[in-house]
Simulated scan of single mutants.
Amino acid sequence: MQQNDESPELEDELYEHFRVEVPKGQDLLRIDKFLMHFIANSSRNKIQTAADNGDIYVNDVPVKSNYRVKPFDVVRILLAHPPFENRVDPENIPLDIVYEDEALLVINKPPGLVVHPGHGNYTGTLVNALAYHFENLPMNSSERPGLVHRIDKDTSGLLVIAKTEAAMTHLAKQFEAKTSEREYVAIVWGNLKEDEGTIEGNIARHLKDRMQMAVFADPNVGKPAVTHYKVLERFGYVTMVSCVLETGRTHQIRVHMKHIGHPLFNDARYGGDLILKGTTFTKYKQFIDNCFKILPRQALHAKTLGFVHPTTGEMMRFDTELPDDMQQLIEKWRAYAKSNTAGEDED
């Protein structure tokens, strides 16, 4: 499943999620079958995956799914995130629902709303809101209810949520097969030379800064990522672009645009919160500071979303207006560009 992951996982510490001592009279039984009787809302496939990942321990030794438990074995499941990350407390957080039927819903996520509980954000997320407004949402492969895909905390825009197991499976396959349609609008630093183009480059965790992703030339490092961009409007020192995703890697647009020398405007994680293009005049610096105040986040919005409906087979396409903060920023840059010959020779 293609997912945009907002928070990098903890890698150095393991947390105990489950522990049981095998009863005295237990017959020899494969551990995947044994655990299905003890772990609620789980499946044999998920247990086998945990074993393949080295997350299931017997007497403090990792075992595979074909291990046969015996009386008095101590079985533990250790994962790289605290167990309470998977506990979802319902919270009455309003949702902007663009469309809803029995199989799915499409929401317009505001900036600042984290999609799912994770390291540092255990409450106040979209998943907490979904748990309040809907019952019995299906779990995705990461045990998060309803989520087919994700966008970053400070990215606004459209998300599809599955309401049934069948819808989850059908939609997830579309995202994995790259048949879903996703267009983002971004404002980036600089004046792009070409009106349109394609950025290709494997994306993986940055070698030095684990909070960032990076593009790697080595084809054996990271996962392939493809972003198609098209210039929508030029403002001199910044440019508004449309980005269409073929893949859904972590921070894909943000890291790809930085890779070609055009970080997203006010993207603090990737250096876009600095004055990267423009003049040295105090008045210009004040203008940029005001722009940052208008849009205190990366300038990125998931504007359109398309997919085949899992029940009807109909092609569904949704579009949403840019949020107020981005519209205000665009108008400010549009006025600045009209009153200045800003950035005519910038690249």
Rank of each mutant, 00 (worst) to 15 (best):
residue 3 Q to K: 02
residue 4 N to E: 15
residue 8 P to D: 10
residue 12 D to N: 15
residue 15 Y to N: 06
residue 24 K to D: 14
residue 26 Q to F: 08
residue 26 Q to R: 07
residue 28 L to Y: 09
residue 29 L to F: 04
residue 34 F to Y: 14
residue 34 F to E: 06
residue 47 I to A: 03
residue 49 T to A: 13
residue 51 A to V: 07
residue 55 D to W: 06
residue 60 D to S: 15
residue 67 Y to D: 08
residue 68 R to N: 10
residue 68 R to T: 15
residue 71 P to H: 11
residue 72 F to G: 09
residue 72 F to I: 15
residue 79 L to D: 10
residue 80 A to H: 15
residue 82 P to G: 13
residue 87 R to N: 13
residue 88 V to F: 06
residue 94 P to K: 14
residue 99 Y to C: 10
residue 108 N to I: 00
residue 109 K to R: 11
residue 111 P to G: 01
residue 113 L to G: 02
residue 125 T to N: 03
residue 132 Y to D: 01
residue 134 F to Y: 11
residue 136 N to C: 08
residue 145 P to D: 02
residue 148 V to K: 01
residue 150 R to Y: 10
residue 158 L to C: 03
residue 160 V to I: 05
residue 164 T to A: 09
residue 166 A to R: 13
residue 167 A to H: 08
residue 171 L to T: 02
residue 174 Q to C: 06
residue 177 A to G: 11
residue 178 K to L: 00
residue 182 R to S: 00
residue 189 W to V: 06
residue 190 G to D: 14
residue 191 N to P: 07
residue 193 K to P: 05
residue 195 D to A: 13
residue 195 D to K: 14
residue 199 I to Y: 02
residue 201 G to T: 00
residue 205 R to G: 02
residue 209 D to T: 14
residue 211 M to I: 11
residue 213 M to N: 00
residue 215 V to P: 00
residue 215 V to M: 01
residue 215 V to N: 00
residue 216 F to H: 01
residue 218 D to A: 03
residue 221 V to R: 10
residue 224 P to Q: 14
residue 225 A to F: 05
residue 231 V to P: 04
residue 231 V to S: 04
residue 232 L to Y: 04
residue 234 R to G: 07
residue 234 R to L: 05
residue 237 Y to A: 03
residue 240 M to S: 03
residue 244 V to Y: 12
residue 246 E to W: 05
residue 248 G to E: 01
residue 248 G to K: 01
residue 249 R to A: 05
residue 252 Q to V: 03
residue 256 H to T: 00
residue 258 K to I: 04
residue 258 K to Q: 07
residue 262 H to T: 06
residue 262 H to R: 08
residue 268 A to F: 15
residue 269 R to L: 15
residue 270 Y to W: 13
residue 270 Y to T: 08
residue 277 K to F: 13
residue 280 T to C: 12
residue 281 F to N: 14
residue 285 K to S: 14
residue 291 C to W: 06
residue 300 L to Y: 05
residue 304 T to S: 04
residue 304 T to W: 00
residue 306 G to R: 00
residue 308 V to K: 00
residue 311 T to S: 10
residue 311 T to G: 06
residue 313 G to F: 07
residue 314 E to A: 10
residue 318 F to S: 01
residue 319 D to P: 01
residue 322 L to M: 12
residue 324 D to I: 14
residue 325 D to L: 12
residue 326 M to A: 04
residue 328 Q to G: 10
residue 331 E to H: 13
residue 331 E to V: 09
residue 334 R to L: 09
residue 337 A to C: 12
residue 338 K to L: 12
residue 340 N to Y: 05
residue 340 N to G: 04
residue 342 A to L: 04
